[in-house]
Simulated scan of single mutants.
Amino acid sequence: MNDEVIDEVRAIRDAHAARFAYDLRAIYADLKRSEAERIAAGHPFVSPPSELPTPNSALQRTRFAHR
């Protein structure tokens, strides 16, 4: 399945990775630097939840009941 948006995101991601010779440590450092700059500029930052939500097993059972 081809999707223009997905293709564009993948192209941007690939171009970003290529800038750092696909070095994951360098890519991570750049993302953290960019994050710090955005926070310093006043953009909101939402921390991830401290706990993962527990799945509702009753809901999980009924989700696939009609398949």
Rank of each mutant, 00 (worst) to 15 (best):
A11F: 03
R67K: 09
R33D: 15
E4I: 02
P44E: 01
R33S: 13
H66W: 14
F64C: 12
A41S: 08
Y28G: 03
F45Y: 12
R33W: 13
L31Y: 09
I6Y: 01
R63D: 04
R67S: 10
V5Q: 10
P48I: 04
R63M: 06
N2A: 14
H66K: 15
V46L: 05
T54C: 11
T62P: 01
I39K: 04
A36F: 10
A65P: 01
A58G: 10
T62N: 09
R38Y: 09
S50C: 11
I39C: 01
D3P: 07
P49V: 02
S34E: 13
S34N: 14
I12G: 00
A41N: 08
S50D: 03
M1C: 10
D7T: 04
R33L: 14
H66C: 13
I27R: 02
M1Q: 12
H43T: 05
Q60I: 13
P49A: 06
G42S: 00
V9K: 12
V5F: 05
L24M: 15
F20R: 01
A40Y: 04
A36P: 03
Y22H: 15
A41W: 02
A21Q: 14
N2Q: 15
Y28H: 15
A29Q: 14
A17C: 14
I39T: 02
R33G: 03
R25P: 08
Y22R: 15
R63K: 03
A29S: 14
V9Q: 03
I6H: 08
P53S: 09
L59T: 07
M1I: 06
S47E: 02
E35R: 07
L52P: 04
I27G: 06
K32N: 01
I6T: 11
R61D: 14
P49M: 00
R10T: 07
H66V: 15
V9L: 14
H66G: 04
H43C: 03
L24N: 12
A58L: 02
T54G: 06
T54R: 01
Q60A: 10
R19Q: 15
I27K: 02
I39L: 04
H16R: 12
L24W: 09
R13H: 09
D30T: 07
Q60N: 06
M1W: 11
N56Q: 04
P53T: 05
H66R: 15
V9M: 14
S47K: 00
A26W: 12
R19E: 15
E8C: 08
D3L: 12
F45A: 05
P48R: 08
V5R: 04
M1A: 10
P53Y: 06
R67W: 01
V9F: 08
T54E: 08
A26E: 14
V9H: 10
L52H: 11
A40V: 04
A40F: 07
R19I: 10
P49W: 06
K32Y: 10
P53E: 03
A58W: 06
S34K: 11
R10N: 15
A15V: 04
